[in-house]
């Protein structure tokens, strides 16, 4: 066999999918059409990731896959067999906040809160990208590996997360606090 069909017959429109979410492994029988976002919200009842546009335009559904931020609405759950998925629920808890969560509270980085879990998961992924020396559209010289997270860099790197309440100045301030190590 050279083509692996995860426990399905090619004639069926469902598949058994093994997902590792926040360190816990679960197996579901899912319609192949199920987005990762719907699998998280409707099947695992992890409702932190939000459905805003469902077309990859707003960022409210952002989660981390193998440490990288992605839009969970624009990927199929069945594609993520044995990937390491982290949602906002796995990033921190009410008793042990992630530094970004603490900074968002401290800086009032939200109003209605609908975009916030996406903003925080995105910021966590973004900080890892910057630490790895990735350039951005705001980087003057892409060949340089010295990345300084100025406000312009933070804004550009976070442009995939829309905040309808326009809490942007406070979101940038919260992320800047974490960059400067003052977030907790």
């Amino acid at each position: 066999m050279t083509v692996e069909s995860p426990s399905t017959s090619l004639q069926t429109h469902t598949a058994a999918v093994r997902l590792r979410v926040n360190g816990t492994e679960r197996v579901f029988e899912l319609d192949t059409r199920t987005s990762l976002l719907d699998a998280l919200r409707e099947h695992l009842h992890l409702t932190g990731a939000k459905k805003g546009c469902d077309h990859g335009q707003c960022g409210a559904c952002t989660v981390l896959i193998n440490g990288r931020r992605i839009n969970s609405c624009l990927t199929l759950a069945v594609k993520h067999e044995s990937d390491e998925i982290v949602t906002i629920e796995g990033l921190g808890t009410a008793d042990a906040l992630h530094p970004l969560q603490a900074a968002f509270i401290e800086r009032d980085g939200f109003q209605c809160g609908y975009c916030t879990s996406g903003q925080i998961c995105s910021a966590a992924g973004m900080l890892a990208e910057a630490a790895a020396g990735w350039p951005s559209h705001a980087t003057t010289c892409v060949a340089s590996h010295e990345i300084e997270l100025t406000d312009a860099e933070i804004r550009e790197r976070m442009s995939g997360n829309i905040c309808r309440c326009a809490a942007y100045p406070n979101i940038v301030a919260a992320i800047r606090d974490v960059v400067e190590g003052a977030g907790s």
């Binding site: 992924g125 973004m126 976070m158 995939g160």
Partner: peptide
């Protein structure tokens, strides 16, 4: 270093999340 126009063009497109996928 050698094809900065490609790096610049990729970074001008989409968002961080989409570029990862």
């Amino acid at each position: 270093a050698r094809y900065p126009v490609l790096s610049q063009a990729l970074l001008a497109g989409a968002s961080g999340q989409l570029r990862n996928m």
